[in-house]
Nucleic acid binder design. Structure first.
Lengths: 106, 106
DNA sequence: CGAACTGTTCAACTATTATCGAACCATGAG
DNA sequence: CTCATGGTTCGATAATAGTTGAACAGTTCG
């Protein structure tokens, strides 16, 4: 399961990966810490395993997340440091408004 | 020709609009100042007018650029302030690496 | 007005991406 | 080893996005 090197991250690929609401929301939750794949379903409800896996692939191939074996499961984590070194400030700028959108002011 | 209000900008739409190399590069050049549409062709060479217009539409509908009449032409400008107020730091984080990619270190 | 100039919109086609069931693979438990 | 569990990959289909020529619209200039 290939992951791009930190130095090879492509900005447009990262932006594209994060331009989907479900993927952005997941990236947001991953700031809290790694999650098993089963915990990566969108908040609203379950989606088919294959669909989820596809989104994870998009994020992984863009270099946004790492996906590694963990016991009999797999653990998904945000590549914070790699992203920060290649695109400083990007993650913070993208995820902080996403957090606000997730819990709109009332 | 509709432009979304600053308050209505949607993060995923902005990210998507900037996830295309030609559009990202244009946004980058727009930091230098407004451009007429004719000057918005990608650096490599000319593209059909309709294709360019379509990319401008994507950027405009996402709220990244403003497109207003200017004499017999149209002037395209970056919506810096609106983007900054809605998504602080995003533009800087996205466009500064884009500048680097445009002129790779030798 | 009418022609030239700049761009946008339309419509058709192509290409990429999303979705999802089914088949498949790896790991750990019994 | 065998089975159940947790995920990925495959293949087909649907949906969305990109590309383009041609038609159309607004502005200026003669």
């Amino acid at each position: 399961m290939p992951h791009p090197d930190a130095a090879d991250l492509v900005l447009t690929d990262v932006l594209f990966a994060l331009s989907d609401p479900a993927r952005l929301e997941l990236a947001c939750r991953l700031t809290e810490g790694p999650l098993e794949v089963a915990a990566c379903h969108p908040v609203g409800g379950e989606i088919p395993k294959s669909t989820l896996s596809h989104h994870l692939k998009t994020l992984r191939e863009a270099g946004v997340v790492r996906n590694e074996p963990y016991g009999r499961q797999r653990r998904v984590s945000l590549r914070r440091d790699d992203l920060e070194s290649r695109f400083p400030g990007l993650l913070a700028a993208v995820l902080s408004p996403a957090l606000v959108e997730a819990s709109p002011p009332r």
